[in-house]
Simulated scan of single mutants.
Amino acid sequence: MSWSLIIRLLVLALLIAFLVAPESFAFLLQPFTKIGQPAIYDRGTLWGLTLSHLAITFAATSLATLVALGLAILVTRPFGAEFLPLSRSLANIGQTFPPVAVLALTVPILGFGTAPTLVALFLYGLLPIFENSITGLTTLPPTVTVAARGMGMTGLQRLVRVELPLALPVILSGVRLSTVISLATATIGSTVAARTLGEIIIAGLTASNTAFVMQGGLIVAVLAVLIYDGLSALERFFVARTTKGSSLSPR
């Protein structure tokens, strides 16, 4: 077991311990509070807020992945190539309108809570996945695709058994970037009453309690690093797997 893995596991264990029993770490945060202020956020459980934050992030990223990958598959087929400009424009919407602006536009329609945050994160996460999916599907080794056609595979068989498996590492790279961006951006969801870790940061800023701001920010930062590393490891696994070659025999 490498030292880097041991350090990551130790950090994960410390994070879980902090979320489950934050009072045990109060002495570390107490110096950052004013007289009479609590060191640990006490208007909700850190564990519950973290799970809610992760659920919102992964729900938005999963939906963005389905839509972005579907659009990428469409525009990389001969019959859908003409829709590339339109699809790229749709994927760019989230980058054109900041998440705060999306929240301002969606709250009057969807109300306060999780829904506006999901919409903002979904739109913001489309572009990295869409562009990486297109790159992965359009930069496949020509010899592999020609061999697949020569073996009589249908278009669907080539997509499912050849193109997507070979493009998966590049697609995962886009998903990784989108996930980390959404994880950090989800904190603003608390401004519209979504249950995220931004609730702790906002409470700290409102009460001038640096300890609250630190614990909310640190939890998000540690989660981002751990998730980034985990998805990077998954990406490396698929890279190693695809380099061994893929079976092209039709079923």
Rank of each mutant, 00 (worst) to 15 (best):
I35C: 05
G245A: 04
T57V: 10
F238A: 07
A221S: 13
G230N: 00
I6C: 00
G113D: 08
A64K: 12
F83G: 04
A167S: 13
S178C: 10
W47C: 02
V192H: 06
V160W: 02
L19T: 02
L205T: 10
A221Y: 02
L105S: 12
G189I: 05
D229H: 08
F79I: 01
V20A: 11
W47Q: 05
Q215L: 11
I6E: 00
V146Q: 15
V144N: 02
T114G: 08
I6G: 00
R176F: 12
G152N: 08
P142Y: 04
A64L: 09
L90D: 02
S4K: 02
G125P: 06
A104M: 15
L156Q: 12
F212Y: 11
L110D: 06
P38C: 05
L223W: 01
T114M: 14
G111E: 07
F237C: 01
V102T: 14
L69H: 07
P116E: 00
D229A: 12
G113V: 08
E235I: 03
S89M: 13
R236L: 04
A39L: 11
T139A: 14
V170A: 03
S4D: 08
I7A: 01
R161H: 15
T96K: 07
F83L: 13
P99D: 04
T185R: 10
S52V: 02
A224C: 08
I202F: 12
T57A: 03
S89Q: 13
D42W: 12
S2F: 03
F238K: 02
L28Q: 03
L74D: 02
L248W: 05
F130K: 03
V75Q: 01
L103K: 08
P141D: 11
A167V: 09
T243C: 13
T50K: 02
A148E: 09
P99Y: 06
L177I: 15
V213E: 00
P142E: 13
V100T: 13
S178M: 12
P38A: 04
G36P: 09
T139I: 10
I219F: 05
L28I: 14
Q37L: 10
I56L: 15
L156G: 03
P142V: 09
R88F: 11
L63C: 10
I7S: 01
T45R: 14
G217F: 12
V170P: 00
I56N: 06
A81W: 01
R251W: 13
V100E: 07
Q30E: 15
T96F: 13
I202S: 12
E82W: 14
I7Q: 00
I73T: 04
G204E: 00
A224W: 11
L231N: 01
V220G: 06
N209P: 12
G204S: 06
N92I: 04
F130T: 07
Q37N: 10
I171V: 10
L46G: 11
A194P: 04
T135Y: 13
S2Y: 03
Y41F: 15
L46H: 15
I56G: 07
F112T: 11
L51A: 11
L10W: 02
L234H: 03
V11S: 00
I227Q: 05
T145A: 03
L159S: 01
G198K: 01
T243R: 15
V239Y: 11
F79A: 00
T206N: 13
